[in-house]
């Protein structure tokens, strides 16, 4: 790809309001700017946790575009991905205020040991059932998390959570609807759904582990372990309706919050970052 193809074409960008996407500019909503604008190093680290989860998952879901079982589902997964990109932008923008870095610096110029995302979000898309199982777990967890983060003493985090929680509520519903249909559809769809859940379940434990960072952010962060009962209570009726047993296998070692990742993340980041690294500073 030549430099020309990624240069700014202002005439085209201004041509209509439908296709114009100003990805180069970070504009947080007014309510996100009014609070304390600079994150402390600990708050920034916590914002990285949540922002990286959203960013990695969004990148994963983007890979479904043109590959989903139906055109309508292409759009549905794309919409979820776009919501997550929005959450990632707000969170990474805020995280970057601690070290004077932009959201793009954080998204495109860190390598995998610097990423703080959970192992579950870097698990491969697999078949549609695996993606739905991953969405089901993550969106139920994030919904419980953002619901509580709305009351954070950090006003910026609280504002981001308040805005995002409504979208995550829909993601949760989308995944639940599909889990029920796959589990209760054909023999083949049920087999795949059960396989996907048992493949993903080892990575559920890591989500609810408390790291030392959480002790330093009392009243600001939500303690992951405190979310487990609400998570379990929310998913139980879905498993019951789907007539699927809760998976009960081994527990993966995790370590995503301290930058220890599986081999999957590096490939995902390579694809996500290649263009920016080939053309530093390019915008389009």
């Amino acid at each position: 790809m030549s430099e020309d193809t990624v240069s700014i074409d202002s005439a085209r960008a201004d041509a209509d309001d439908h296709g114009h996407v100003a990805v180069a500019v970070t504009t947080l909503d007014a309510e996100l700017i009014e609070g304390p604008s600079l994150a402390t190093p600990d708050v920034a680290e916590y914002a990285l946790w949540l922002g990286d989860d959203a960013l990695v998952l969004a990148q994963q879901l983007g890979a479904w575009i043109s590959r989903a079982p139906e055109l309508e589902e292409d759009v549905a997964l794309g919409n979820v991905a776009l919501d997550l990109i929005g959450h990632a932008r707000s969170l990474l923008h805020y995280a970057g205020t601690a070290t004077n870095r932009t959201e793009d610096d954080l998204a495109y110029w860190r390598t995998e040991p610097d990423f703080r995302s959970l192992h579950i979000v870097e698990q491969p898309n697999g078949d549609f059932a695996h993606t739905i199982a991953r969405q089901f777990v993550v969106s139920h967890y994030v919904f419980e998390l953002y619901s509580r983060l709305r009351a954070s003493a950090d006003q910026t985090l609280a504002a981001i959570a308040a805005k995002a929680v409504k979208e995550v509520d829909y993601h949760r519903d989308h995944a639940t609807q599909w889990m029920l249909r796959l589990a209760q559809g054909t023999d083949e769809s049920r087999r795949r759904m059960i396989t996907a859940l048992s493949d993903l379940w080892p990575y559920v434990d890591e989500i609810f582990r408390d790291e030392p960072l959480i002790d330093r952010l009392e009243g600001i962060a939500v303690r992951p372990s405190s979310l487990r009962p609400a998570f379990d209570a929310a998913i139980a009726p879905v498993f019951a309706e789907a007539e699927v047993e809760l998976p009960n296998g081994f527990v993966a070692s995790g370590g995503g919050r301290i930058g220890k990742h599986s081999e999957h993340l590096a490939f995902l980041l390579a694809e996500m970052q290649v263009l920016t690294r080939a053309h530093p500073g390019a915008s389009w």
Binding site: E72, V75, A76, N79, Y170, D173, H174, Q177, R181
Partner: peptide, 9 residues
Amino acid sequence: LAVRNARDL
């Protein structure tokens, strides 16, 4: 799912 797809589309 039709209502949800309609929302998305």
